[in-house]
Write a protein that binds this DNA or RNA. Structure first.
Lengths: 183, 183
DNA sequence: TGCTAAACGGAACGACCGCCCCGATTCTAT
DNA sequence: ATAGAATCGGGGCGGTCGTTCCGTTTAGCA
């Protein structure tokens, strides 16, 4: 249970690798060579592999952290305006995807399968979506025949729009909003 | 200008490669090894490279043909019901993406950049969309503040939903339809 | 049937990448 | 200060993939 404390240089390098991997995955996506991250962090590839057994595990660590941030940010917002919570969440996620290729790919299943590799994060995320959806439906801003699974699908679509079409995707937010409103 | 006629075996192999590449890209996407196509076609990799200078040029040839089919299919449908033309086009494209990974990737920019490598096909496609959109707006089934560029963005989103979420994407068609309707 | 140029196919090359190995280096407790 | 252990880093292995090369085969013609 208790992790044995790392030596000072090891702890420093681990933190450094995490920070650099964070930026690099965001810029380049899950497919950057591990050597590129090592180069940017000023360490050897071997050092990365001492802290993370595989490239995928490093990517997972980053994605898990990113998801945690999104969940936290959304929880704060959602309390303010129940009817807007789901929309704020959807569009925030799309914006995040714009500057974080790794996050977008994670949702699309590139580099990780969230459901099997990060089940807790996955469950928390699904719970959040279900809450926001129910809340919005209760407030009357979202039609009743939409379910959590549909929200996931929408996220994939929105992220793709953002990723491949950049800011042009913003113009579709009103369309999505209108489409989700009760008829 | 006039192509010198191919030897019988060369013509046979060229046709065979095209047919197999068509199926293989559809199933596996732009990233299948050329060796896999060669194996399925029962030829050597060298034979493929005698007919197509690069893997990308082969992929382009397939995609161009695929686009031509979609345009033709849409032109036939669009005359029938002006108001429905754009919706039929959008959802047809999404369905195509379901069974043709190569086509989906082409729209997302994987394997080819349509605008620069197939400019004529690109132009024809854009013209088709513009026509369908104007027609739908005239018929009053699509809101006026949507433009051709928005339609492109929507296509990217729909294809992504189809690709990563399978038939679950169908459930969002009504949402998109409602979102596009005039308020 | 024999000849030649065209076409074939698959081995081989080079570039890339994830991951591991191991000699060199650095930390820390004494 | 020093010994010994923990850590470092980069060269190298094994595998993949796009592309080329070249010895062999075959179509087409006289």
């Amino acid at each position: 249970m208790t992790e044995k404390p790392l030596r000072a240089d090891a702890a420093r390098n681990r933190a450094r690798v995490l920070r650099v991997a964070y930026e690099t995955f965001a810029e380049e996506g899950a497919n950057v060579p591990i050597d590129e991250i090592a180069r940017r962090a000023g360490v050897g590839a071997g050092t990365i592999y001492r802290h993370f057994p595989t490239k995928e595990s490093l990517f997972q660590a980053i994605v898990a952290d990113r998801l945690r941030q999104v969940v936290e940010h959304t929880r704060e917002q959602a309390a303010a305006d129940p009817g807007e919570g789901l929309f704020a969440f959807l569009f925030h996620l799309a914006e995040q995807g714009a500057t974080d290729l790794g996050l977008t790919e994670a949702f699309a299943g590139v580099g990780v399968d969230l459901a099997t590799s990060l089940p807790e994060a996955e469950r928390e995320f699904t719970g959040l979506m279900a809450g926001l959806l129910a809340q919005a439906q209760r407030a009357g801003t979202v039609r009743r025949d939409v379910d959590v699974d549909d929200v996931r699908t929408l996220i994939v679509g929105l992220q793709a729009m953002r990723r491949f079409r950049g800011e042009r995707a913003d113009r579709l937010y009103p369309v999505i909003r209108a489409g989700l409103s009760p008829r």
